[in-house]
Each structure stands twice: as structure tokens, then as C-alpha cells.
Amino acid sequence: MNKVFTDGLSFALPLLIMAIGALYSEKSGVTNLAVEGFQGVGAFFGALAATLFAPLIGNGNQAIIYIAMVCAAIGGALFSCIHGLLCIRFRANQVISGVVINILSVALTAFCTSAANAAISGNASNKFVLDVSSKFTVPLLSKIPWIGGLFTDMYPFEIIIAVLVVVLWYLMNRTRFGMRLRACGENPQAVDAAGANVTRIRWMAVIISGALSGIGGICFAYSLLGNFSPSIYQGFGYLAIAAMIFGNWNIGPTTLACLAFGLAKSGGLQLCIAAKLPSNYTDLFLLLPYVLTLLLLIFFSRKNHPPKAAGEPWDKSKR
């Protein structure tokens, strides 16, 4: 039972940070289906940095994870500029742009990984092997009955993400920047008339979205996968978007949706182990989050309210 909570949380939190990334972009009026691509490219940069720097700071030193997280954020942010360029500057269809970026990211990271590996080790492998992050248990909280599992065997990045979520909520709902950002997604003309720069706010939102997704990606690489390889693209980005839709573009409910996904995934897997099914059957349980997403979408999609101006390029000359 504890294992369900432990694994569930470690899956839910990276998902959540990606969902909040998507949320920032969409709240500013830029539809963002590119999270999948952002997280992959971000994770690539993080994993590349880890591979390059690990020998310098000593193998097995856990500090490498923090370096990787910073690099993943930067990499995701850089890559998200393509989405910004297409959607904000070139006024391309934002759905197409998202799809284009996801396709490009798979190709780009596959090519760059083998090129980088060939240059570093001479072996053009398609993965960077990473250590799985070390874990810790919160002393008192983990003893709480039932939910103690949430505080057992935690990855350090879970704390970082939890803190980030609070900060991001505050930024979105209490500050001048957040207020303007939300206004941009509803009525960019109003923001422009109020003297704020819609283009700049949307750029910042997209870049934040890229950075957060990058962090989410590298956390998956360091926990669930233990490496960086094409298997980073498992549709987690789309799950994050689905969570954002259930959360009706609000951070609080989105958090609950991510937790539900995480628990469904870990619960399914533990069930499979408990039932002593052959390993083949794990495939059947791995598809649980996707089925759950579809089912939840059926119940929640009708009534949701995306930001009104999302998907529309901002054109100053239009009134």
C-alpha cells in the first residue's frame, strides 16, 4: 500500500510541473500541445549535462541531479522558443505548431543523442545512462497511518517541485505578472490598451512553460526510467495536458488530477505484482493511465472553459 503512494507521488509531481507549464502558456493565450516535446528536449539537455559533468564532480555524487535539472530547464526553455516563434511571431496555427514541435523533438533528441554518444564514448548509443536518484524518508510524517507512504522513499526533486508549485501558484494568482498573463489569455486587446506588452508576456509564458516541462522531463529520466532514451516520449506531456483540462486551467484542481493519474498508475502496477501475473501482463496495467484519461475526459470535457483567446494569434491591428 505504501508503495502505491510512494510511486504515485513520484509520478504525479513531474506530471504536475509539466501540466503547470502547459497552463502558463495557455492562460497567456498560446495553446500548448508541445509539452511532450519540451519535456523530451529538456530531459536531453539535462542528461547530456549529467553525462558531461558527472566525471568532473565525481561519479555517484547526487549533486549532479541538480545540475541536470537546471540544464533541463534551460534546454526546455530554449526549445520552447521555436513554439514561441511559430505561434507568436509567425502566427502559425498553434495546434499544428505543437504537433510539429513534438515530432521535431523526437527526431532531434534521437539524432543528437547518438551524435553526442559517438563523440563522447565512440559508441553511437541512443541512450544516456543515468543513476536513479537517491531517496529519503521524512522522519515523522512517514509514520502517519494510511498516507505515510507519501513521505516514504521520496526523491529530492519531489520537494523542489512541491515548492515550485506553490511559487507558481502565487506568481499566477497574486502578482502583477500573473494578473496580466491571465488577462492576455482572455482579452489581449484589454492588456494592450492597459499599456502592457502582450507579445512579451506571451513569450515569457511560453518560455516558462518550456522550462517547467524540461524539469518534468529530467525528473522522469532520473526516477521512472533511470536513463535518457527515446522512451522518454511516452505521452506524459499529453497526460499533463489532460490533467490541465480536468483542472479547468486552475492549478489546484490540476494538482488533484495529477495525483489521481499517479495513484492509478502505481496502483495498477502494484495490483499486477500482487496478483503474481507474468511480466507480459504489466503492459495491460501500463495502459491504465491512458484509459483513465479518456474516461475522465468523457466526463469533464463538456463543461470546461479554456482561456477565451487561447489559440488566436495576437494581432495589434485588429480591434
Partner: peptide, 22 residues
Amino acid sequence: FNIHEVVSTIMLNYIISYLTGF
């Protein structure tokens, strides 16, 4: 149900992939 086709197709992709794989 107003489900965006990009999300539903991707979900189906993974469902099909795991199911046929199994």
C-alpha cells in the same frame, strides 16, 4: 464529449500500442 482529438488520438495510440504488444 468535446474531447480534443489530439489528446484522444494520442491516448488511443498508447492504448493500442500496449494492447497489441501484450
